[in-house]
């Protein structure tokens, strides 16, 4: 029991969350009675139909949203707000401060967290080297490409030297090729550090490629439907992506998700009949 407790980085117990008051029209039940243990050193992917509450769960884990009911523990500490010493976030949108250079962004982040002044420059340099951006330290975010900005955001998170990284679709706004390369880099990083990562994604391939475990969400109100394990050591090579096992697990994931995605889409209106092309009917018979 104690063994299990020390191996758990984040423990989520019976968390439900609703947005808006119960009597309001825009009251939304985002999460329903979700429990989950994130093991130390693993990369856990949260995948599910849009609006299923996976991002909500991530924000609850990081203390950015207080859940309506339920508890979250990070190690032996209950989460009641942001925990900058334990958890660093990486968001989908560009969350770098546009008025600061990449270097200044990192210094600012560390000053928020409370890193001693003398250590900041050195840590910034090391983190930028780790993501290959040390030559761009003096650039403003607007001068970098989307992929470079997300690498900079990753560097800022790394410089905080937390044990846990929470990533909310960090590569979601990037093109397929860039996100594949960044995924490989993240796998390398994971093999070198002992960080625990929770990673929200829409992409089945990304989930299988990166995750040690994938938690599949049901449609809203979201809860975890099933957890599948991907048994492949990090760093994962691109060869893994073309292996039969990769495809088999991707298909398994798709089967699990398919019904939930349909359900989720039905919540926001569904097609009543197939579209009939008027022009082809009116045209001359073939």
């Amino acid at each position: 029991m104690t063994q299990a407790a020390t191996n758990t980085a984040i423990s989520v117990r019976n968390v439900s969350h609703s947005f808006g008051e119960a009597d309001e029209a825009r009251h939304v039940k985002a999460l329903l009675d979700t429990s989950l243990d994130v093991t130390r050193g693993e990369l856990l992917c949260l995948i599910g139909p849009s609006g299923c509450g996976k991002s909500t769960l991530l924000n609850v884990m990081g203390g950015l949203i207080a859940p309506t009911t339920g508890t979250v523990m990070v190690g032996d500490k209950p989460v009641h707000g942001p925990m900058p010493n334990d958890i660093a976030f990486i968001f989908q949108e560009n969350a770098l401060f546009p008025w600061s250079t990449i270097h200044e962004n990192m210094i600012l982040g560390m000053s928020f967290q409370g890193v001693p002044k003398a250590e900041r420059a050195d840590r910034a340099q090391r983190a930028l080297e780790a993501v290959g951006l040390d030559e761009f330290a003096g650039h403003y975010p607007s001068q970098l490409s989307g992929g470079m900005r997300q690498r900079a955001a990753l560097a800022r998170a790394l410089s905080l030297e937390t044990n846990i990284l929470l990533m909310d679709e960090p590569f979601g706004a990037l093109d397929e090729q860039t996100r594949m390369v960044l995924g490989e880099d993240l796998s390398v990083l994971l093999s070198r550090s002992k960080k625990t990562i929770v990673f929200v994604t829409h992409s089945l391939g990304e989930a299988v490629f990166l995750a040690d475990r994938v938690a599949v969400f049901s449609a809203r109100p979201g809860t975890i439907k099933e957890i599948i394990t991907v048994d492949e050591p990090h760093p994962r090579k691109s060869a893994f992506m073309t292996s039969a096992r990769f495809h088999q697990q991707r298909d398994q994931l798709y089967d699990l998700l398919h019904d939930e995605i349909r359900k989720s889409m039905a919540q926001s209106g569904k097609p009543k009949r197939a579209y009939e092309d008027q022009s082809s009917r009116a045209g001359p018979a073939a």
């Binding site: 950015l64 942001p82 401060f97 982040g109 928020f112 967290q113």
Partner: peptide, 20 residues
């Protein structure tokens, strides 16, 4: 997102006002 990001890194209200 900039406010959320600052808050996640532990910024105080004063730091958010001054730096964000």
């Amino acid at each position: 997102i900039l406010l959320t990001s600052a808050r996640s890194m532990g910024a105080s209200n004063w730091q958010i006002l001054r730096h964000v």
